[in-house]
Simulated assay, not measured.
Amino acid sequence: MTPTDEEGLTLAYFTILSTNDKPLVRAIIDVLVVAALWSLSSAGYYDIKDGLGLSNGYQEAPVLYSAYYLGFSIAAVLLFRHRLRLWHPLAHGALPVVVVLVMIAVFTLAVLPSLPEIDLTLAPSNPPEFMFADGRYYVPKTFEILFQQILILTIVLVLQSFGWPILRIGMLTAALFGLFHLSLILGGATSFYVARFTIAATCFGAVVPGLQLATRNGATLSFGLHWGFYIADNIFTHVVLSSAP
């Protein structure tokens, strides 16, 4: 295939993506692009980590991975601008944004360092990276969550485009997010880890359409809820796996 042919296919793809007037075809394309972006970002994370010989990518290269996920976030906004420009959220104020940022700062700077240390004899053989992370880990994690929030909002807007009520959209996103997180077991995660992440993702999927479509400051609340789960899970993990009396 010549460069001219490749340019023609790329142009045709973006033309279909931006102008196709068949809702089902357009929705399928958008969902496939969401899946591709999500998968590509995950694969790229491990490629970079292995290429640099890192044991914990976020912890050891926070600036690099922050830029990495910021780039994916910008790409997602550009690819799905035809969806995002049709989103008309209820009013957003500065105060909820400040509250979420303060929540993140308090956790990473004050709460996380004060948590009891995890007993290595109690930790699983293949522990998640956040288990032994400090505040540096959560800088790129914040950008990853931003990227995921854009993809989640896109999925919600795709479902809304069919005129479905928020309750039905919530049921679909709950099932979709729950099933997606079941795949964690393929990476060798413990059954308890997979179970709590799957349950949390299912509950989040059930409420996120209502937050993003019909709640004041919904996007900020959705982001804060997403981030808040990692706070709760980290505290839970440190307490349960601590050897402290």
Rank of each mutant, 00 (worst) to 15 (best):
E117G: 06
R81K: 13
Y45G: 01
T19I: 13
I166P: 02
N56W: 09
V139K: 04
T198W: 05
G188R: 15
I29K: 01
L24C: 04
F192R: 15
T15F: 14
E129A: 15
N126K: 13
W227C: 08
H82E: 07
S55A: 12
M1A: 15
V207G: 00
Y69L: 12
H92D: 08
I185H: 10
L153N: 12
S18W: 11
L78M: 12
A201E: 04
V100I: 14
S39C: 14
D5Q: 14
F192A: 14
I104G: 06
V111C: 06
S222C: 14
A61P: 00
D134L: 11
R216I: 07
A123I: 06
L146M: 12
V207N: 00
Q148L: 14
L151Y: 06
Q212K: 00
A201G: 00
R83P: 00
C203S: 06
L182I: 04
L241D: 08
I118E: 12
I74S: 03
T190R: 01
T220Y: 10
S183A: 12
A36K: 14
I29R: 07
V239K: 05
G53W: 13
G210D: 04
V239R: 13
V33N: 07
L79D: 00
P245H: 11
G187V: 03
F107M: 11
L79Q: 02
Q149A: 14
G8E: 14
G93R: 03
V100D: 07
A175S: 12
L176Y: 11
P127C: 08
S125T: 08
W227L: 03
E117L: 11
V63L: 14
G228N: 05
S73R: 01
L167S: 06
A232T: 02
F72E: 02
L32H: 14
G188A: 14
A91S: 06
R83I: 05
V158Q: 03
F204P: 01
P89D: 08
L186S: 10
S125G: 07
S222M: 14
G187Y: 12
D233K: 10
G205H: 02
H82T: 01
A36N: 02
V25G: 07
L78K: 09
L157I: 03
S66R: 04
V106W: 03
R81H: 09
A195W: 05
I152D: 03
F180W: 15
V31E: 12
T190K: 06
G135I: 04
V239F: 11
V97T: 06
A12L: 10
V98C: 12
F162C: 08
G224N: 03
K49H: 05
Y137L: 00
Y45L: 07
V98T: 13
I166D: 09
A110N: 11
H92G: 14
V106E: 01
I152F: 02
T215F: 10
L159H: 08
A110G: 14
I145C: 02
N234G: 09
L37G: 03
E7S: 15
A43P: 05
G218Q: 05
A195S: 15
F223N: 07
F72P: 03
W227V: 04
Y45C: 00
L24G: 06
R85A: 11
L11I: 05
L157V: 08
L213M: 01
K49Y: 01
R196L: 09
I166S: 13
L151H: 13
F143N: 03
